[in-house]
Design a protein around this nucleic acid. Sequence first.
DNA 1: TGCTGAAATTCATCCGATGACTTGGAGGCT
DNA 2: AGCCTCCAAGTCATCGGATGAATTTCAGCA
Lengths: 231, 231
Amino acid sequence: MAITDEAIEKIKEMIVTGALHPGDRLPREADLAERLGLSRNSLREAVKALSLIHVLDVRQGDGTYVTSLEPSVLLDAMAFVIDFHRDDTVLEFLEVRRILEPAATAMAAARMTRDDVAQLRALLDKLGPSPSVEELVANDLEFHRRIAFGAGNQVLCSLVEGLSGPTQRARIWRGLTQESAVQRTLAEHRSICDAIAAGQPEVARAWATVHIAGVEQWLREVLTETSVSVD
Amino acid sequence: MAITDEAIEKIKEMIVTGALHPGDRLPREADLAERLGLSRNSLREAVKALSLIHVLDVRQGDGTYVTSLEPSVLLDAMAFVIDFHRDDTVLEFLEVRRILEPAATAMAAARMTRDDVAQLRALLDKLGPSPSVEELVANDLEFHRRIAFGAGNQVLCSLVEGLSGPTQRARIWRGLTQESAVQRTLAEHRSICDAIAAGQPEVARAWATVHIAGVEQWLREVLTETSVSVD
DNA sequence: TGCTGAAATTCATCCGATGACTTGGAGGCT
DNA sequence: AGCCTCCAAGTCATCGGATGAATTTCAGCA
């Protein structure tokens, strides 16, 4: 194994075994490099890799720290990974969302407080009569984020959030506006919200399923029409 | 933004825009560094980070290549990330598995061929009368892997696979053997297999749910008993 | 043809030096 | 005392160059 990979493993080891706790500061690069028996350059490669996936947080002029290591932070890196995928696999991601989101929505319907629901509805109301694509994306993202958060499971929450990279969501919404399916989608958001407000998990689950399946079907048609060369 | 991060973005951009395709070879480090306007050292940090998440594949003496970028390859990196989590969040991961696995199992029940099922059953039969923990873990992993694969969705498959890091699965099985709950768990595997063989998605889904929920409940009790300091 | 070994290519690792950024404290002002 | 300014120390960021290690390529030979 390459020396840099060993360094990655060793740092990981230090964290997993508890030698390093979340928030802890690492020794300075020069010291840590010496301790691990490699050059500062090679160590930096290891640190850079670990900081890309948010395990380490490097602050110039200050030091290098272990992040909180919360699922949300780590799964966050997943969005980065997902951005690499183009249309051909987008459908598969959407299929997974169709599994996760209804579950999350049902859980949210059982757990969210009256106050949470009020905020959720306020979010939907905030959208003007003719919103831009950017506003739609932001609103959509926030809506699903809050529901996932309301499900009370951090892992589920970040997974749902990460699963539709911002890039993909943007592309979908751009497509929807062109096809004037925006109104239907927004109406579905309201239905989901209503079901959660009524505390009806199964109804909420059904609306969420319908919602995702709708987008899925639309995307499937678009991909078929434009044939193979969507790229 | 740091120059290295810019390099990461630029390489990502090249891939996403299609300037670089899966399998393509990158220019040699020296050239690429010059082209992107940074030193070889800094470029290497970027490359190292991208290769940790399996976006790039570096081969000494040969060159640096873009990987296949298949979901399985990229989500693979998730297992690495998940290894950082300890008992406190394991339950949340398990809860997500309880959502995904039943769905995958139901899909598998509808899609797997007679031949696939035969192999699945053969796998279960391969386990001797008193298997070691290592054998149990390997068998368990392979069992769930095949079902997820049988669901016909790469993303779902790698997600299910990745969600229970090998480390965690091992710990769970070690615990199960101590509590002699092994037989019940193995019996559940057989029930799941039977339901898939019978082509009954809903029965398969139910057994999968029961299976995961069982592990979940056991783990919940263990965590409660041993109090806070499981770490 | 098929094998061997040397040369070319490319990544791996190291070293040393300089620049940039953050933090904390010394010193002075109000 | 409280506050601000500014400087010095600490730490990461980036660079250029040099040498080693692994792989591939291909000429030369049996």
